[in-house]
């Protein structure tokens, strides 16, 4: 009788702590695995700095160069749309902000729900489009491994379950909410062990890219 509620309390309680613990363990291990490898000393006389260009690339690489945009408008546009939509749903939905505030003590204003709702709907459509694109585009199909489809699924699930729970399209509600939280926990658990780590490492990669090029006097 109270199973869905017991499930909800489990995912909100012990499971949530486990997911965060695994996430923290895995992510720190991954980041150290990267940083501790270090770089060999570079004796070549630099033409430019590393830090400035590196940090600039961290930001600028979010925007595609015009040529790439022309050659792959779908990737650039849909990629942007769903990343932004995902971040809106994750970071600007009031209940999520409450959770983050409870976790780390930092809060910020949210967006009105209809806006978050619309962003989520757009993101869902965009994600489905990326999947279709991945299955059809010769390069992506050739590149894709089981992991790519796994992380697509793991990314899609929190959004779709959140959307279903918000609109109360599956019931009972504790089950819907529990599934959403569980999906988010699966995302957290899977993150450090898959290419979802790019959420963190992409910025490290961009910095290295900018630094390597910047040292040679090129803003990458």
């Amino acid at each position: 009788m109270s199973d869905p509620m017991a499930f909800l309390l489990w995912v909100k309680g012990p499971m949530f702590n486990w997911a965060l613990a695994i996430f923290a363990l895995g992510t720190l291990a991954r980041l150290l695995e990267i940083f501790l490898l270090g770089r060999r000393p570079n004796y070549a006389e630099p033409r430019g700095g590393e830090w400035g260009p590196g940090l600039r690339t961290v930001l600028t690489r979010s925007v595609a160069d015009p040529g790439t945009f022309q050659r792959a408008p779908f990737d650039v546009l849909v990629g942007w749309i769903w990343h932004v939509g995902f971040l809106i749903a994750l970071l600007l939905f009031i209940p999520h902000i409450e959770l983050i505030q409870a976790l780390i003590g930092l809060g910020w204003p949210g967006l009105p729900n209809p806006v978050v709702d619309a962003a989520t709907a757009v993101t869902l459509v965009a994600l489905v489009a990326t999947l279709i694109h991945r299955l059809r585009h010769p390069v992506k199909r050739h590149l894709s491994t089981a992991e790519d489809y796994l992380i697509w699924t793991v990314t899609f699930l929190p959004l779709i379950t959140g959307y279903l729970a918000y609109h109360r399209l599956i019931g009972p509600y504790p089950l819907a909410l529990g599934l959403h939280i569980l999906a988010a926990e699966i995302f957290l658990i899977v993150l450090p062990f898959t290419k979802l780590t790019h959420i963190f490492t992409a910025f490290i990669a961009r910095w290295y890219n900018g630094a390597i090029f910047g040292r040679k006097g090129v803003q990458s």
Partner: peptide, 12 residues
């Protein structure tokens, strides 16, 4: 470290 960061980040 850069190589590790790069391979960690590729999303295909």
């Amino acid at each position: 470290a850069p190589v590790a960061a790069f391979f960690s980040s590729c999303v295909h």
